[in-house]
Computed example of a mutant assay.
Amino acid sequence: MLYLVEHFYSIQGEGKHVGAPSLFFRFGGCNMKCEGFGCKEKAPNGVEVLGCDTVYAVNKENFSHLWAPVEKASELLNILNLYDLPGAVDIVLTGGEPLIYANDEVFVTFLETLVKNGHRITFETNGSINVDFEKYPVYKECVFALSVKLSNSNESESKRVNGAVIHNLASNAKEAFFKFSIDFESIHLGLEEEISNIVIHSLKTEVYCMPLGGTKAEVEANTEPLIEFCKAKGYNFSDRLHIRIWDQNKGV
């Protein structure tokens, strides 16, 4: 079953297309927990859940009230009619991990219709789930923001880094770029080697680094050290505008 957690029209706050007006679809479910990011959110039942800054789209057990089942592609496509959109705006598919639905017929039909109607589709993915580009050629028309997780996620390397998958996604997508979430402490803990061991699987793919944090204060605390890191290594710095402006990562 395909689950949608939220949708909202805003600007892209991260990565290569930052600032672009975008309609976001946040899907529920992920193959990782990323508890090392240290973001906490209290569920309606009072349980405090640890994970990434969108843990409500990862933990169905405690946030099931937000997870709406989707049975037809038209249910997703009709969401576009809820907004006063200026033409074929960018569509951003995020989560959780949206590629857990890569083989879902409803999901693929949704993508095919969006491409047919002229939308640029960007997947915000952790880059660990493979896509069959030959069976589903619609993915060749999509952009992949490869947010491959680093050790600061507390996920095992074997789970978060799959060179063959990274290469396949970057090589077959219409466009791809790496996007890493980095905190101040990680900069001094072998971060350069970690990133190098990931980008080696697609050396021509641009690298963007953004400050880790689920609040404005956390993002700002990690910004200046990260800028200096990017200057030293030649990476692109990516702000997180949605958090810096609205101080949240949910539906803005």
Score class of each variant (00 low, 15 high):
Leu66Trp: 12
Glu224Lys: 14
Val131Trp: 03
Gln248Thr: 09
Ile182Val: 15
Asn162Val: 12
Gly51Met: 07
Asp53Val: 03
Pro225Met: 02
Phe229His: 06
Asn172His: 13
Val92Glu: 10
Ala43Gly: 06
Ile129Cys: 09
Asn81Gln: 14
Asn162Pro: 01
His188Ser: 14
Gly234Met: 03
Glu112Trp: 04
Glu185Lys: 13
Lys216Asn: 12
Glu35Thr: 14
Leu82Cys: 12
Leu23Cys: 08
Glu220Phe: 12
Phe237Leu: 13
Pro86His: 05
Glu224Ile: 10
Leu4Gln: 07
Lys149Ser: 02
Ala232Asn: 11
Gly51Lys: 05
Arg160Gln: 04
His17Ile: 13
Glu224Ala: 09
Asn130Gln: 09
Ile79Gln: 05
Glu206Gln: 15
Asp104Thr: 09
Lys116Glu: 15
Thr223Glu: 14
Ala57Trp: 00
Met210Val: 06
Lys33Trp: 13
Ser181Asn: 11
Leu212Tyr: 08
Phe133Pro: 00
Arg240Trp: 08
Ser128Pro: 02
Asn162Lys: 15
Leu203Met: 11
Ile182His: 06
Thr113Tyr: 10
His119Asp: 06
Glu206Thr: 13
Val18Met: 13
Ile227Leu: 12
Gly213His: 03
Ile227Gly: 11
Ala221Gly: 08
Glu97Gln: 05
Gly38Met: 08
His119Ala: 04
Leu50Thr: 07
Phe144Asn: 05
Glu75Met: 06
Val70Ile: 15
Glu134Val: 10
Leu146Ile: 06
Leu114Tyr: 01
Asn103Glu: 11
Tyr139Asp: 03
Asn31Val: 04
Ile100His: 02
Asp53Ser: 15
Ile200Ser: 08
Glu193Ala: 13
Val148Asn: 00
Glu175Tyr: 14
Ile79His: 07
Ala176Ser: 15
Gly96Ala: 05
Phe144Leu: 05
Trp67Tyr: 12
Phe24Pro: 00
Gly51Thr: 04
Ser153Asn: 01
Ser202Gln: 10
Val58Ser: 09
Thr223Ile: 07
Ser181Thr: 14
Phe27Lys: 00
Glu6Tyr: 07
Ala20Thr: 15
Val161Arg: 07
Lys60His: 15
Glu193Ser: 12
Lys16Thr: 05
Ile91Trp: 06
Asn249Tyr: 15
Thr205Asn: 08
Gly234Arg: 02
Ser238Tyr: 00
Gly95Lys: 00
Gly96Thr: 01
Lys231Thr: 11
Gly234Val: 02
Tyr208Ser: 03
Lys16Ser: 08
Leu93Arg: 01
Lys159Arg: 11
Leu82Ser: 11
Lys250Arg: 14
Lys233Trp: 02
Tyr136Ile: 09
Asp84Gly: 10
Ala232Glu: 12
Phe63Arg: 04
Gly19His: 06
Ser158Leu: 13
Tyr3Ala: 03
Phe184Thr: 11
